[in-house]
Amino acid sequence: MSTDLPPQVGRTRAGEPATFLEAVAEALWEEMERDDRVFLMGEDIGAYGGAFKVTRGFLDRFGPSRVIDTPISEGGFTGAAAGAAHMGLRPVVEMQFMDFISPAYDVLTNYIATSLYRGSGPLPLVVRGPAGGGNRGGPFHSQNVEMAFFHTPGLKIVYPSTPSDAKGLLKSAIRDDDPVLFEEHKGLYRAPFCRETLPAADRVVPIGKARVALEGEDLTIVSYGLMVHRCLEAAEALARDRIRVEVIDLRTLLPLDEEAIAASVRKTGKLLIVHEDTRTGGIAGEIAIRMNERAFEWLDGPILRVTAIDSPVPFSGELEDYFLPTAADVATAGRYLFRY
């Protein structure tokens, strides 16, 4: 087995800034080095190194018993991960694209998510993979799948927006005793604006805690994943209009850190929710009702949302650009809400 580090896991040790993808790879590598119960399963993750090369070099270092190339059978290998987790291992399942998780919906929602409640014990496993649009992937390689699982009791859903959070949250997810869905926006994977020098120490980021990405007084914008960056762009534009925006990066969708949102709403009195996922049944609806329950007296305007439109993700670039929410959309909604 090789002792050389593959390039995508050596940035932090070299003191260099890491991309989002490299942060994910480092988290996997370090957790596999730390705990021999951790192993990977997925399509083309071994010899090929993964569709996005997150696991390039892992097979050489950790061997075929810990980096398992699976048949094209998302339900089968997710179910197998559950069995391995029952036996004390810590599987990390890669969906080549998160769109492909749908064949595993049965085992995830009916078996894995219910395990603890049924008295079958916890199932510590992670299902991770690239999600989101903007890469001209069309309807089958661009989806955000979080809300298909959001209403399933028993799961956790993590969707980070920065390399440091991706690394720290993935480490937490692997160490967590509950099943965790971990979405990685592929638009962040190699984005130049999304490089960070990561701490060399073994830093974990707790699941279930949002962060304030930008402090402000006039308006709260809540988002996650790539859209956090769109919101920060919008906040810059709004700042030029003297509108001071607070941006909350959820980081974890389930469990939802509603206290962080409520605390910000109590400060600003205005709430805008932004997600790349489609509109109907998106997390904005859930956040809106929770703030209606928790912070109604503090609201000085309607809760608004900016989302993708309710359609499959279109393939053509022109169509996809229109489909996806933009920083300009966020800024427009922010101005409207500020003046309300």
Partner: peptide, 13 residues
């Protein structure tokens, strides 16, 4: 479905 889960347990073995 349980053949998948049991296969995973056996994989752990």
């Amino acid at each position: 479905m349980m053949t998948q889960v049991v296969a995973g347990a056996a994989l752990a073995f």
